[in-house]
Each structure stands twice: as C-alpha cells, then as structure tokens.
Nucleic acid binder design. Structure first.
Lengths: 210, 210
DNA sequence: ACCTGAACACCGTTCAAGT
DNA sequence: ACCTGAACACCGTTCAAGT
C-alpha cells in the first residue's frame, strides 16, 4: 500500500465540512497518546470526532494513512533551530527529534513505515545542511547524515519502548536480565533514570560529532 | 502486558504433543517472512500447524508472545564470532545483526517491544564484552554499547522499511522527495542499491569504532 | 461534496467440553 | 496435559443511499 504522501489529497472546495485531515490527525494523536497504537481504532477515532467510522474514509484511504499523518504531525513539533555553529545546530535538531519521540512513545515504533511526510523531510534536510556547513560532502555527508539519523531513531525506539512498559514490568525485566547476564545489568545496559539516559545519549553524539 | 520472557513456561512432561513453542515459533517466522506482520493471524498460524487457533493459547498467552518469540528466533541466526581482535569482533557481530534484520524485514519494526529474549541478550553481551576488551569501561562502555546497538537498530529499521515497499512505491517516493527537497535526493539520502547501503553502513561503523 | 447505515469478512481471546 | 468447538466482542473496509 503506497503511503499517504504519494497520493493527491481529495478535492475540498465546499465549505465547513465537519472533518478534515488536520482535525483527524489531531484527534488521532490524542488517542494515541492516551491509549497507544492498539487503542487507535477507526471507530473510536470517529467517536472522538462525533462522526461515523465510515465517514473517515472520505478523507483517508486506510487506517495506516492515519498513522502516517500522526507520525508526521509529531515531527512537526520538533523545533528547527536558528542557524548558528553547525555542530550546535545538528545537536539541537537531533535532541529535539529524540524528545518528540519520547513524548509520544507510540511514534517510535511506527517509524517502520517510509518517512515521507513534509515535517520529517524538512528536519532531515536541515540536518544534512548543517553537516554540509561543517565541510562534509558527497559520500561523507551521506554517511554522517544517516549515522546521526539512525542513531536517534534507534535510541528513541529503545528508550520509548522501555518507558512505555509499566514499572512492575521494568522491575521484572531487570531481575530477568540480572539472572541471565549480570555483566549487562551492572553496566546499565537497561535504560535507567531519565537524566542518565539523556547524558548517555549526549555522549553518543559527542562521539559522532567529534 | 508483560513480555513472554518474564513468565514461566507451562509444564510439559507429557509425551508427543502436537505443538511446542519451538514449532509455533518456526511456523510464525515462516508466515511472517511470507506475509508480513499483518499476515500473521492466530487462525492462519494454527492452520499452518494443522491445529485449531484456540490450541495455540495453551502454549502462548497472546499473539504478542508469538511476535516476541519470532523476533528472538531471528536473532538466534546472528553468528557469534570467534574472539579475535576486539574491533573486528564488534564489527562482525553488528554486521550479522543488520543482516538478520534485513533478511526478515518485519523484525525491525517489532523491536518496539522490550528485547529480553535469550538470543538477543547473548548478542548484546558479546558486543559489550568486545568493547570492554578494547579498553572501555564504566560510562564509556555503556555509551559505546548503546551507540553501536542503536545505530544498527536504526539503520536496519529504515533500510528494511525501504526494501519492504514495492518497486513502484519506491519510485513514487523518489519522485515525491525529488520534488519536495532536491538536495536530499541528490545526496542519496534515500536508500539506493544494496551494495551502496552496505558501504554506507560500514563507513558509519568506521566513525564509531575510530 | 460529504456523511450515514447496513453489511461483509475477518479478527484475538475465553471457556466449557472432550480425550 | 493438550486440543476442539462454539461463542463474544470486537475489528477495517465497502458501498449504496441520503443530503
């Protein structure tokens, strides 16, 4: 199934329809924040919008479309910084990127769909531009951009997953891993308190941006 | 819902049951390879095993359990290399890790569940051990391990997603991005031919392991 | 153009019952 | 201990019909 971004938006020249892609997207993000991915149902989403579930299909082709829209919406909240020094710019962007995904833990798991939304693309482009200001080009530029992007994605995904599970589960997981391989737990391989994770993430950036 | 790995396996002291966690896992991986995540249905899985769908619930608590088992099974295929020089060891492991996820593109998207399976843990532990042989310890060791692990996860996720989509969709995506932000496409931000991606991934490793 | 209502073909999961 | 069968409460999506 092709992604939303590759298909033209339906004509909309009438006035005051009850629904719009925008309103659907916002409602979807709300539901996802509250209930998680499995909680987002076309019927529940419709109910939240005061409409029949089937009405959504005039604005959107599938449930996956809704998820694509929601993910891109979250990326829209990542601030694109004023340009200063290139390292600082790249750092700020990537930091905001990670923050956004931690604020909406369901989003990280959905990156397993092509990220072609306008907000995602704009952020990626900014990142690449910052790195090119740092003197990188051609192959080096590609490598660096992907390295950074993949690092945030991976970090956000694992951290978001960890935090999305209940405290009880986290405790159980810790005991499980302690029993299975003690060296891992001793070195804090499992995510710990937030401040700690933030620190570790930043040190990773240091290595990359050295 | 707590993950499979945190709950005891049901007693099994009778002889010759038709089903086992092992057989279920293998069948699940087969189905996932053939049909993707949405194609894995408890009913279809049961049919593939010549059994009623409800029979699965004696061996497994939920469909998510099946997914956890399948992911860990895939990790079992990642070779743990003989120990030689630490950099080479880390590289070999991570390379195999990426390969495994590219061979089973559905797996990458499922990492949004705590990775606590025995096979995953063993690989992570090997990676950390290799890095510690390289002289890293404490905070530095944690940072490096997570950096590497998150890089593979991110890279595998984006690449697997890209390859899982049809050739037509990829072409459409390329045109879409070309129109939206030409600089990105010129620099091969979108994944290209396989050899190219392999190369780019390895250069990223160079940076990290420098 | 935009939304409703009824309907189709599925789901995951529970539970009593069989062997 | 392990599996079947019937049943429940949902799903996503289609499509004719309304306005």
């Amino acid at each position: 199934m092709t992604s939303v971004w590759l298909r033209p938006e339906p004509d909309r020249r009438r006035r005051q329809p009850q629904l719009s892609r925008e309103s659907i997207t916002v409602a979807a993000v709300g539901l996802l924040d509250a209930e998680g991915v499995d909680g987002l149902t076309m019927r529940r989403l419709a109910a939240a919008l005061g409409v029949t579930s089937t009405a959504l299909y005039w604005h959107v082709e599938t449930r996956d479309d809704v998820l694509d829209l929601a993910v891109d919406h979250v990326f829209g909240a990542v601030p694109i910084p004023e340009k200063t020094e290139w390292r600082a710019d790249a750092r700020t962007l990537v930091r905001g990127w990670r923050r956004a995904m931690l604020d909406h833990p369901w989003a990280a798991a959905l990156i397993g769909r092509p990220m072609l939304g306008p907000n995602v693309l704009a952020r990626t482009e900014f990142l690449q531009e910052a790195l090119s200001r740092g003197g990188l080009k051609d192959r080096e530029l590609t490598v660096a951009t992907r390295l950074l992007a993949n690092y945030v994605i991976g970090a956000a995904l694992t951290e978001a997953t960890w935090r999305a599970s209940s405290a009880a589960d986290r405790e159980a997981a810790r005991r499980h891993v302690t029993a299975a391989c003690p060296t891992l737990v001793a070195s804090r391989h499992l995510a710990g308190p937030e401040r700690d994770d933030d620190e570790i993430f930043e040190r990773g950036l240091d290595v990359i941006l050295r």
